[in-house]
Simulated assay, not measured.
Amino acid sequence: MNEEFTNRMLAVVEVTTARPDRPAYHAKVQVLNSRVVADAETAGWVVTRVAAADVTADELLRITADADAVVIVGGEDVTPHFYGGSSGYEGETAHFATADEGQIALVQRAFALGTPLLGICRGLQIINVALGGTLVQHIDDGIHKNIDVPIDQILSTHDVTLAADSTLASSLGRVDITVQSAHHQIVDRLGVGLVPAAHAPDGLIEALEHVTAPITGVQWHPEAPDSPADQLALLLAGLADQHAIRALAESLAAA
């Protein structure tokens, strides 16, 4: 479909604008997040970029209220108490509970209103937690993240198999893809209405989507510089298609 819409608005929601204690990690995250913004603007979106840790949950909802679609990008682990977990686990990162609260509220509003939403890495985990799911707090297998390497080498390249009947496979135009990922947490219990949309070679869930709402999460980084060149563009085009379907339904309902 990919119809053009004047002033089509996309909210790109990151965790924080400052990590003074981890400059190398912050620089890496900024490269990834900036790619999402740049490619979305190239595709014709008007982008609002906001850091969820820098505002309250209510402010985040207000800032993104006019968004036609949302992308929640990567970052730190979700604070465990949001999914009934405990701190002190292996590989635990810094937590930004304010960002978690705001992004969870954003997913729940997107579900309620039918707003297209894409979660990338942490964004997938936020989707799952927001809809009542839980997370495996640590994996350390060398497939999903390169271990004991500098931050610039942390992304691992591996294959992923998409569910043939998934919206994600339709967007990407194939079921077997290569991705780059860098995560140490994964989906455990799926949130209400969510189904696996892709698996890694070890059987772990690498993507999920909602059975009725236009909500998709990918555990990998399509915005990474060395990811397949068309991957992010196709996912953004999928959001545009979902927005077009929603806009048409609203137009018909109002007629």
Rank of each mutant, 00 (worst) to 15 (best):
E206K: 13
N2C: 06
S156W: 11
A43C: 13
L155K: 00
L118V: 06
V195M: 12
L172N: 10
G75W: 01
L155N: 01
D140M: 05
I205E: 12
D202Y: 05
A164S: 13
A249C: 13
Q185S: 09
T161Q: 13
V192C: 12
F96K: 00
L162V: 01
M9S: 15
V50H: 02
P222D: 07
N2T: 14
A197G: 06
A51L: 05
W45R: 12
A254V: 04
A249K: 15
Q219V: 03
V73Q: 00
I120K: 06
F82M: 00
A69D: 02
A99W: 03
I143K: 05
R19F: 08
H26I: 05
G193Y: 09
D226L: 15
G142D: 13
Q231M: 14
L61P: 04
T48K: 10
P225K: 04
H158G: 15
G91P: 03
V78N: 10
I154W: 03
T178F: 03
A240M: 06
D54K: 03
L131P: 08
L252G: 08
A244H: 09
H81N: 07
F96E: 02
A163H: 07
V149N: 08
L106N: 02
D152E: 14
E250T: 07
N128T: 07
L236C: 14
A43V: 09
A224T: 04
L118Y: 05
V13P: 01
G142N: 11
T42F: 10
D241E: 14
V31A: 13
L239V: 02
A237L: 11
G114D: 07
E101S: 11
D100N: 11
T56I: 03
A198F: 11
A52M: 02
I245M: 10
L60A: 01
T48R: 12
T42V: 13
E14T: 01
I154H: 02
T79R: 03
G74Q: 05
D226P: 00
G114H: 05
N128R: 12
R246T: 14
H158I: 14
T178M: 12
